[in-house]
């Protein structure tokens, strides 16, 4: 990864308004940063990778939400964002005629859903008509800063693939910073710790390698695996 500079709101990032990307704004033919973040400047565009901030929903995102209210025609879902979401009865395949909404999902239930529509007044509508979507009855939900989600997924899903293959757990990452983990309890614990490390050290170099090492070490410590290399066993002492 190339080294990236930290920019603050108001810093001049480019003088070509055509290159302005996410996290920037244009005024008087100049491009300025509008959030605290890392500068990602290429020949074709400038964008700021934010370091902090809330989750703002966008259409097509997979999110994990908690049911806050049940109404006659759907559920009101908290998606860890400034905007609450609505899941209509028609968008939940588990709804059969003669079943009431509160028999299907009740207050406090967690669900994996997709953002179907957002209207200009930021009314968010969810759907569960997707093979990924399901109510969560087992496993664990981990919350991280939503701006660190891309790092947990990794380039083309590399980080998440690593965790899945090394630990043999189910992982679904919500774009809103909630992550669902399921599998062997001890392995899930390792995955949880690994995710927190990724969150803490996002935007640093060689993170994938360090995570690989960490997962291996923890597996040995938990007695899930025998130390294979001599270096690992020395680290224990």
């Amino acid at each position: 990864m190339i080294s990236r500079k930290i920019v603050l709101p108001g810093d001049l990032v480019s003088t070509n308004p055509k290159t302005a990307g996410p996290g920037t704004y244009v005024e008087g033919n100049k491009v300025y940063a509008r959030v605290l973040g890392l500068l990602d400047k290429t020949d074709t565009g400038v964008r700021i990778i934010p370091l902090k901030g809330r989750y703002i929903p966008s259409v097509g995102d997979t999110v994990i939400g908690i049911v806050r209210e049940v109404t006659a025609n759907g559920w009101i879902v908290d998606i860890n964002s400034p905007y609450i979401a609505f899941l209509p009865v028609l968008e939940n395949p588990a709804m059969k005629p003669n079943r009431k909404p509160n028999d299907v999902l009740d207050i406090g239930d967690a669900i994996i859903a997709k953002v179907m529509n957002i209207d200009p007044k930021m009314k968010v509508t969810l759907t569960m008509k997707d093979k990924l979507c399901r109510p969560i009855r087992v496993g664990r939900i981990v919350a991280i800063n939503p701006t660190r989600v891309p790092r947990v997924i990794g380039k083309k899903g590399s980080m998440i693939k690593l965790l899945k293959s090394e630990l043999d757990v189910q992982i679904i990452v919500g774009q809103n910073g909630l992550i669902w983990l399921n599998g062997d309890r001890r392995k899930v614990s390792i995955a949880e710790e690994a995710i927190y490390i990724i969150e803490q050290e996002a935007h640093t170099e060689g993170l994938t390698d360090r995570i690989t090492e960490f997962v291996k070490k923890r597996k040995v410590e938990m007695g899930l695996e025998k130390p294979e290399e001599k270096e690992v066993s020395e680290d224990q002492g």
Binding site: L8, P9, G10, G23, L36, G37, P50, K52, G53, T147
Partner: peptide, 11 residues
Amino acid sequence: LVDAGIPMKGI
């Protein structure tokens, strides 16, 4: 405000 990651024109 900057620490909260809120978009602003400057400081």
